[in-house]
C-alpha cells in the first residue's frame, strides 16, 4: 500500500515536470529563463558537491535558522505557559500582543536594521520575532487545555506547584507545543532566507540574489528547487520527531 502511494506521488511530480517541459517546448516563456529539469538537477548536484557553491549557503542558512528556532521555541514556550498560568499578565499584555501580532514580520526588517545593524543579532531577532507567535499561542492553548482532574491528581500526590508544572502541565501541553514549533520552523526558514536576500547575510537568500544579478539562470532555479526540498525535509523531520518523542499526542491517532 505504502509503496503504491509513493509511486503515485512520484507520478504527480513527473506530471509537474512534464508540464514544465511542455511550457518550455511551446515557447510561451523564453527558454533562456526556463532551463530544462535535467540541467537544473545537474547544476544542483554539482553545486552541492563543490565547496564554494550551494552547499555552504545551505549550511549557513540551516545554522542561522536552527539558532533562531531554538530561541523562539524556548522563549515562546515560557511566554505561552506564563500567559496561560497567569490570567492577570495575560489580560494586561493582551493589547500589546494583539498590536504586534498582525504586523507583517518582514516589515520590521528596516527597523531591525536601524537598531541592530546588519549582523547576526539582527537576523536572529527577525527570526524570533516572526516565529515565536505560533509557539506562544500553541503553548498557551496546550496549558489551558490541561484537564483539571490531572492537576487534582497531582495535588493528591503532594506535588508542589513547580513540580506539577514540570510533571503534568508541560507533558500535557507538549503535543500542542510541538505543533506550534513545527509551524514556527517554516516561518523561521522564510525569515532566514528573506533577511539573507535583503541584507546579504550568507546563506541561500544571498546566493539566490547573487546568481540572479549575474544572470546565472540555471543555478538560480536549482537553488529554488533545493530550497523547496529543504523546506519539505524540515517539516518531515519535525513530524517524525513528534511521532517519536511524543507518542501520546492525539494528532497521531486521527
Amino acid at each position: 500500500m505504502r509503496t503504491i502511494a509513493i509511486i503515485k506521488g512520484m507520478a504527480g511530480f513527473l506530471a509537474a515536470i512534464a508540464v514544465w517541459e511542455l511550457v518550455r517546448a511551446t515557447g510561451t516563456i523564453d527558454s533562456r529563463s526556463l532551463p530544462g529539469i535535467g540541467a537544473i538537477l545537474q547544476s544542483m548536484i554539482s553545486g552541492l558537491a563543490t565547496s564554494d557553491g550551494l552547499m555552504p549557503s545551505v549550511l549557513a542558512t540551516l545554522r542561522t535558522w536552527s539558532m533562531g528556532l531554538v530561541i523562539a521555541s524556548i522563549l515562546g514556550t515560557v511566554v505561552g505557559v506564563a500567559l496561560a498560568l497567569s490570567p492577570l499578565v495575560e489580560t494586561v499584555t493582551r493589547p500589546i500582543v494583539e498590536f504586534l501580532r498582525p504586523v507583517p514580520s518582514v516589515a520590521l526588517i528596516p527597523v531591525a536594521l536601524l537598531v541592530l545593524g546588519i549582523g547576526l543579532p539582527m537576523q536572529l531577532f527577525m527570526i524570533v520575532f516572526a516565529a515565536i507567535w505560533p509557539v506562544i499561542f500553541s503553548a498557551k492553548a496546550g496549558v489551558e487545555g490541561v484537564d483539571p482532574r490531572q492537576l487534582e491528581t497531582g495535588r493528591v500526590f503532594g506535588l508542589s506547584r513547580l513540580a506539577s508544572i514540570w510533571r503534568i502541565v508541560l507533558p500535557a501541553a507538549l503535543p500542542n507545543i510541538a505543533t506550534g514549533i513545527r509551524t514556527a520552523s517554516a516561518i523561521a526558514l522564510v525569515l532566514t532566507i528573506t533577511v539573507e536576500m535583503l541584507v546579504g547575510r550568507p546563506g541561500i537568500g544571498s546566493f539566490l540574489e547573487n546568481v540572479r544579478l549575474n544572470g546565472l539562470v540555471t543555478e538560480m532555479w536549482s537553488a529554488i528547487v533545493l530550497t523547496g526540498i529543504v523546506g519539505y525535509l524540515v517539516n518531515g523531520l519535525f513530524l517524525m520527531l513528534e511521532k517519536r518523542l511524543i507518542p501520546w499526542s492525539a494528532e497521531h491517532h486521527v
Binding site: G9, I193, M197, G205, A223, I224, G228
Partner: peptide, 21 residues
Amino acid sequence: EWVRPILEYLRFLPTVAILPA
C-alpha cells in the same frame, strides 16, 4: 495520493525563494 506530495512540496517551499524567478 497523486497530487498531495507535489502540493506539500510547493507549500513548504519558502515562498521568498521564488522571488528571483
